[in-house]
Design a protein around this nucleic acid. Sequence first.
DNA 1: ATTAAATACTACCAAAATACTAGGAATTAT
DNA 2: ATAATTCCTAGTATTTTGGTAGTATTTAAT
Lengths: 139, 139
Amino acid sequence: MKISTKGRYGLRVMIDLAYHNNGDYISLKDIATRLNITVKYLEQIVSPLSKAGFLNSMRGNNGGHKLAKAPSEYKVGDILRVMEGNLSPVECVSFGDVECPMAESCETVTFWKGLDDVVNKYIDSFTLQDLIVTPRTDN
Amino acid sequence: MKISTKGRYGLRVMIDLAYHNNGDYISLKDIATRLNITVKYLEQIVSPLSKAGFLNSMRGNNGGHKLAKAPSEYKVGDILRVMEGNLSPVECVSFGDVECPMAESCETVTFWKGLDDVVNKYIDSFTLQDLIVTPRTDN
DNA sequence: ATTAAATACTACCAAAATACTAGGAATTAT
DNA sequence: ATAATTCCTAGTATTTTGGTAGTATTTAAT
């Protein structure tokens, strides 16, 4: 039941971009310095966020990334699902996948489905904006 | 955010024992047949449950395992926590561990803590009894 | 006592997932 | 041109997961 480092960093990157959300493109180099990870690793974290349309990205000199929408428009759940793939606690709960052949006689599937629901409901109840209103000491 | 097979099987074993909760000791051999896994692997699943005091176990001929309490006395959360170790979505949330050095300035820790809370609240809202009231086709 | 049936313990192992590292191509402003 | 940047793909070391296996120990039945 762990969130991977990709999920955690993905969220932190989005938070960082929300903090520095003036119209400019923010380079991975800057983010990397602030979050203390390498640019190369950051590239991999940013890639799915960019492909999901969450970021506007610009190559070349003075290029970088910026949020495609206002921080309040991003549900944290959307970000985590992009980074983690599927958050369902067990495979048989995943939507769109084939249903577990034992589902009929399986006592636990309803339970797991409910867990999936509370998790998604919780993470969807926060927006990026909610995470940056807290007073901070640095950055 | 996945529950491991150990967690899933652990829960299924407990459900199986709840179904066959006549005073007798149930052998792993029987459970293994019903759940379609090997006795050897079952041993490893049962071990932490037994050590946690959830089962009364008996060695030797006619030995086996049985629930130590009534099914309604087991919170599903207790079982999952024994099997999965710690269910907190990120390390810095774990109780008893050292706190993350960035906790002060970290916007996400409150969010993760909240996620941990809703997960634990949900899984603690079910007892083993709740999972076996569903009508079943087999066993 | 012997034996058969069971759990208990410990070690090992292979495959998959995770967390990175690395190289180079493409793009863009200056 | 050049420097700075993203984009794309591949590789790799480590950790975690999902088991297998061997042996010792315990117990009931004969």
